[in-house]
């Protein structure tokens, strides 16, 4: 195994961090990650899986079609290094696939048939939370991870994990902000409509609200939708402004 130069390593980490701040595209990011991981340790292929909300792994990215099929095979059969690493939160290192039939009776023969001879898996983990795993395949027997290879690959997986979790937190925040502001808009527009109807009918705002509610019920309107019509196109609901 060749030793990775510090410069090259730094460049890859900067690239990963950079992708996280730019316009973030999840699949693009994961593809970039698998490609850089593969180039770092001269792996034949790298595949990456992320857990969905129910904690089930899904294939997300791979450096080629071959690895995609092998990864899907793991998922179908619920057996293999990625699943193992995901379940334990620990890396799986330097497993000779030609001698792994006991460990993975279905997966090992399938992977060797696809031309892979060795495999490693790294959990995407932040503290106690595991959100996925990255599989690294080699096609030459004896090409093993040595020295700093393991901590470097794990560090790459860690950086990706932090980025993914941050991105999810931001996405959640954006969705909730949108909902909150939407709810606020609904609340406000109803008050505005109450004012409009109260003025037009010369009633109190409470009576105006009753009028609006009755109208919404009898015309099968959602209250909020009717309120919108009142404040933007009052003329279209003459029953509401004429007693």
């Amino acid at each position: 195994m060749t030793t990775v130069s510090g410069e090259r390593l730094a460049a890859i980490f900067v690239e990963v961090a950079d992708t996280l701040v730019d316009e973030f595209d999840l699949l693009d990011f994961l593809h970039m990650l698998t490609e850089r991981a593969a180039s770092l340790v001269e792996a034949s292929a790298v595949g990456l899986m992320l857990a969905d909300q129910r904690g089930r792994l899904e294939f997300m990215a791979g450096t080629n079609e071959n690895v995609r099929l092998v990864e899907l095979f793991q998922l179908q059969n619920q057996e293999g290094p990625c699943l193992e690493s995901f379940r334990t939160g620990e890396p799986v290192i330097n497993v000779d696939l030609t001698a792994a039939a006991d460990r993975w009776p279905l997966f090992a023969p399938r992977a060797t048939a696809a031309g892979f001879l060795s495999v490693h898996a790294f959990p995407l983990r932040l503290r106690e939370r595991v959100i996925g795993a990255m599989n690294v395949f080699g096609n030459t027997r004896g090409r093993l991870l040595t020295g700093n290879d393991v901590p470097i690959m794990q560090a790459l997986a860690d950086v990706a994990t932090i980025g993914l979790l941050q991105e999810r937190a931001i996405r959640r925040g954006e969705v909730l902000t949108e909902q909150l502001q939407g709810a606020l808009n609904s609340r406000i527009v109803i008050e505005q409509a109450k004012g409009a109807v109260a003025q037009a009918r010369a009633t109190s705002v409470d009576d105006a609200f009753d009028i609006i509610r009755r109208y919404a019920r009898s015309h099968n309107y959602r209250l909020v939708d009717l309120a919108h019509v009142i404040v933007t196109d009052f003329a279209s609901v003459p029953d509401l402004y004429r007693p």
Binding site: I188, E191, Q192, A193, K194, G195, V197, A198, Q199, A200
Partner: peptide, 9 residues
């Protein structure tokens, strides 16, 4: 907001 609706009318 109620006042706003009233002034609108």
């Amino acid at each position: 907001y109620q006042a706003q609706g009233m002034v609108m009318i």
